[in-house]
């Protein structure tokens, strides 16, 4: 299969079931809502080193937020149920609570599995906090120097999908980067999906474990490192001198599929020789995104 002359590899991306929460952060204006969201989702690229993965899903207009102010929707993922509330409590407490004018709302209100995030954060109020029930939801008002911080008592948690991916194989780094940027642009603001890495792009894809260091849980994906083509079992085709990866997390598999379709189509542009994907032989992750099936 070829799209715009770019070969689509007959392979699949292998992804994992994760736990996901959606946060709606609002602020006096888009600048402050985004400032909190950027800090909240900082250092949250991969569970390998950050214990969580997070990213901005999309910006929200005033009409789409609970308090009628500009907002940002954030997806937050961890590998297990226990660590999601821990990460949310620490991160919201340090990045959203601290950010002027912001408030923090649950973006998965209909999900039965609830995380007591606001309930834990309320103690920052040192006994001066107050709760309000509005429309069946409890909110906590925490007094702060700027005024008050409003946070919902619980946040929904559901199963999500982490680790959707595709690799862009290009003749040089300029072409790889241009294709990756185009792919990211095409996937930005799609509902239910985040791209947790810097600018949405990974240059250092990894493999499980190490060939040399016993205590490393992930090391460089040497099969796709162009500089190692001559000394490893390389999967870098001839003429390819740079590979970039796009990693996608989302609320469900259809959302990932839709985003991969848009991203791959945008990445198929001059200078790109092929699109492939990372997997572990299908043995580790339950979600398999077959590239040719998605692009058919």
């Amino acid at each position: 299969m070829k799209i715009n002359g770019v070969a689509i590899d007959d392979t699949f991306a292998e992804a994992f079931t994760m736990r996901v929460a959606r946060l709606i952060i609002t602020g006096r204006n888009p600048k402050w809502a985004r400032a909190a969201a950027v800090k909240l989702t900082g250092f949250a690229t991969s569970v390998i080193g950050c214990k969580c993965e997070a990213g901005i899903e999309r910006e929200l207009p005033e009409s789409a937020t609970p308090d009628g102010r500009p907002g940002v929707s954030v997806l937050f993922l961890t590998m297990d149920k226990e660590s999601l509330p821990q990460q949310l409590i620490v991160r919201i407490g340090q990045t959203v609570l601290t950010c002027p004018t912001t408030a923090c709302f649950d973006g998965l209100p209909d999900v039965p599995d609830r995380l007591a995030v606001g309930k834990a954060l309320r103690v920052f109020g040192d006994g001066f906090q107050a709760s309000k029930v509005i429309g069946g939801k409890r909110y906590w008002r925490l007094p702060v120097m700027e005024g008050e911080f409003l946070v919902e008592e619980t946040f929904g948690m559901q199963k999500g999908v982490g680790g959707g991916n595709f690799l862009i194989l290009a003749g040089d780094v300029d072409a790889a980067l241009a294709a990756a940027e185009a792919a990211v642009l095409a996937m930005t603001d799609l509902p239910g999906v985040i791209l947790p890495f810097p600018g949405g792009v990974v240059r250092s894809g990894s493999k499980v474990g190490s060939k040399r260091y016993r205590n490393m849980i992930a090391t460089t994906n040497d099969a796709f490192d162009p500089t190692l083509r001559a000394i490893t079992e390389s999967r870098v085709p001839a003429g390819v001198n740079s590979v970039l990866e796009i990693v996608l997390d989302g609320t469900d598999a259809p959302a990932i599929e839709a985003a991969m379709q848009a991203g791959i189509r945008a990445a198929c542009r001059p200078g790109v020789q092929g699109i492939t994907a990372g997997n572990y032989g299908g043995k580790l992750g339950p979600h398999h995104f077959h590239l040719r099936k998605i692009m058919a």
Partner: peptide, 19 residues
């Protein structure tokens, strides 16, 4: 105490408008 914008009031009033 002070004059400010209580953040829960917009949520409450918008709820009353919608519900």
């Amino acid at each position: 105490a002070c004059t400010y914008q209580p953040p829960h009031v917009p949520v409450l009033l918008r709820y009353l408008r919608a519900r």
